[in-house]
Design a protein around this nucleic acid. Sequence first.
DNA 1: GGGTACATGTAATCAGTTACATGATTTA
DNA 2: TAAATCATGTAACTGATTACATGTACCC
Lengths: 171, 171
Amino acid sequence: MSNPNLTAVSYVVLGLVAHGATTAYDMKQKIAGSVGYFWAFPHSQLYAEPARLVELGLLEEEREQRGRRRRIFSITEAGRQALGDWVREPATEPTQIRDTGLLKLFFGDSLSPQEVRSLAEAQERVHRERLAVYESIEHAIEEPRHADTLRAGLLFERTFVEFWRELATRR
Amino acid sequence: MSNPNLTAVSYVVLGLVAHGATTAYDMKQKIAGSVGYFWAFPHSQLYAEPARLVELGLLEEEREQRGRRRRIFSITEAGRQALGDWVREPATEPTQIRDTGLLKLFFGDSLSPQEVRSLAEAQERVHRERLAVYESIEHAIEEPRHADTLRAGLLFERTFVEFWRELATRR
DNA sequence: GGGTACATGTAATCAGTTACATGATTTA
DNA sequence: TAAATCATGTAACTGATTACATGTACCC
C-alpha cells in the first residue's frame, strides 16, 4: 500500500470518516451494516486506529467540551489524499477467504460421509442466513454507492449456498 | 473452537502434520499448493506454532541427530483427538473475505467511471490467473480428498471473474 | 570454487484481540 | 429509581508480521 504505515484497517477507518463518520461508535455502526460483513474487527480497534491516523496527520481529533467528551474525528486534506492514492493504486495482495468451514472440510478426512453432510448442512444454513440479510439490505438500499460491493456479497453467498447444498445432498 | 488455546493456524499445522508433514519446510510446501490459497500466513509461524503445540502435548518433536538437525514433528494421540473434535464441531465464525479490491471499490466514491473500470480490469485479471492455477491443479489432481475444497475455490474465482468483468465492461 | 537458490531458523515489533471498566441514556 | 442497554474507552497480552541471519546443496 502507498503509505507503509497504513494497514487495510487504517483505510477502512479513513474511508468511514471520509464518508462522514465522526466518532468511534459511529464507525462501529456503519461497519456493522456494511464492510463488517466481509472485513470484521473488534471495536477496540476503532479507538486505537484513529489515534494512529491523527499521529500521521491524516485525521484531526476534536474533543467534545461537555457531556461525554467524545472524540470527534474529521479527515484532513492529507488524509483525503492518502485515501485517494490508495484506491487508485492496484490491489496486489490476493484475496483471502477465512472460512473455518472450508478448513474443516479440508482437514476432515476422518469424517464419515454423514458427518460431512452435517457440516455441509450447517454451513449451508449459515450462508443462507447471510444471504437473506444481504437481500433485505438490497431491498432497502439507501446508499447506491455500495450497490456493487453488496452485489459481490450476494454473488458470493449464492455460490456458497449452492456449494454446500451440493455437498449436503450428495450420496 | 473446542480448545481455547488453539487458533485456526494451530489446526492448519495440526492438520498438516496429521497428513504426514514432518518439518516446517515440508508444511510450507504443502500449504503453498493448497490451503495457502485461501488462508495464508508467513513461514515464521510454522516455526512458532508447532512449538506451542508441542507445549500442549498435541505434537511431538524430535531433533535430527546429524546434518541440519531439523525439527521433525509428529502428531500425538491427543493431537489427533483435538483435530477430530474440532472438525466435528460446527463452525461458528462467519466467513471473512479479505479482498483489498473490494475494499477499494467500497471506499472508491472519488473514482471516475474510467478509474472504476481500471480497478475492475486489474481485479478480473488477478482472479483469472488464480482460476487458471486452480484449473491446472484440477487436471493434475492427485489428492482426491481435496477435490471439494478445490471446487469451492474454482466456484469462488469464477464468480469473481464474472463480477469484475461486468464492472469492467459496464457503460 | 563461487554463485544461486533452497532451507531453517530467531528477534523485535506491532497489529489485533480479549477482557475489563465505567459513564450515559432510556425504559419499565 | 432500578435495571437494562447503549456508548466509550483502556490495559494487557499474544498471535502474526517483518526483518534479519545463516547454513546447505546444487550447478556452472
